[in-house]
Write a protein that binds this DNA or RNA. Structure first.
Length: 94
DNA sequence: TGCTTGACTTACG
DNA sequence: CCGTAAGCCAAGC
């Protein structure tokens, strides 16, 4: 298993309407947030990359602006231009 | 083997 | 809210 596969699995488990930060995924797969970002760039367009946001709820810096529309389309709790992590942050089984 | 880079995070001003 | 600095770990050269 590669980092990319682990990250892909984690991202795919995020249900519509929820999001996870790079740090969250990093903790889950056991790597640093930067590896998550690097892995994401290799995943491809077949994953819900827009459900992966920054620690403060800001959408991914790539695909400039597209994430907001996609998140909104899934009824993701938004607060202005950023995701309301208090409500939208996905939590895997503890 | 060592240095640079990156879809990041946290802390501080 | 925005900019800067240090930390982080894997991949590329």
């Amino acid at each position: 298993m590669s980092i990319v596969d682990e990250v892909r699995e984690a991202v795919l488990t995020i249900p519509p309407g929820f999001v996870a930060s790079y740090g969250d995924i990093g903790e889950r797969v056991g790597v640093g947030p930067r590896q998550v970002g690097r892995a994401m760039s290799l995943l491809g367009p077949d994953v819900p990359w827009w459900r992966v946001v920054h620690a403060d709820g800001a959408p991914a810096t790539c695909h400039d602006g597209r994430a907001s529309e996609l998140l909104r389309g899934e009824s993701t709790p938004m607060r202005g231009a950023r995701v309301d992590l208090k409500r939208a942050r996905h939590r895997w089984a503890l």
